[in-house]
Amino acid sequence: MKLTKEEVNDIALESRLVLTEKELEGTVKFINNFLTMLDSFKELDLKDVEPFSFAETLECPLRADEIHPFENTQGIINQSAHVEDNLFKVPRIMEAQ
């Protein structure tokens, strides 16, 4: 067992996911099998291999610094159930731990 239930639960909470006991059990099994599968990487000599490869060896295109306002900002705002005076309202950020 690579990760305990508690560790997996902590990771879930870091991802803002609260799991039921049943979900947690399934996840623990899944994650541990998965990590075992990834251990196969250790068979490869990766020391001198370039990391962070992209599917295409592109270079980042650069956009001209020209203003093009988005014409449908209201369409963005309207999709939130938390808008008040064009601001997004969220509950208190600091909460008792």
Binding site: R16, L19, E95
Partner: peptide, 12 residues
Amino acid sequence: SGLKEMFERVRS
């Protein structure tokens, strides 16, 4: 009641 609770409930 708090932001963390909101995120957790929405995502869970």
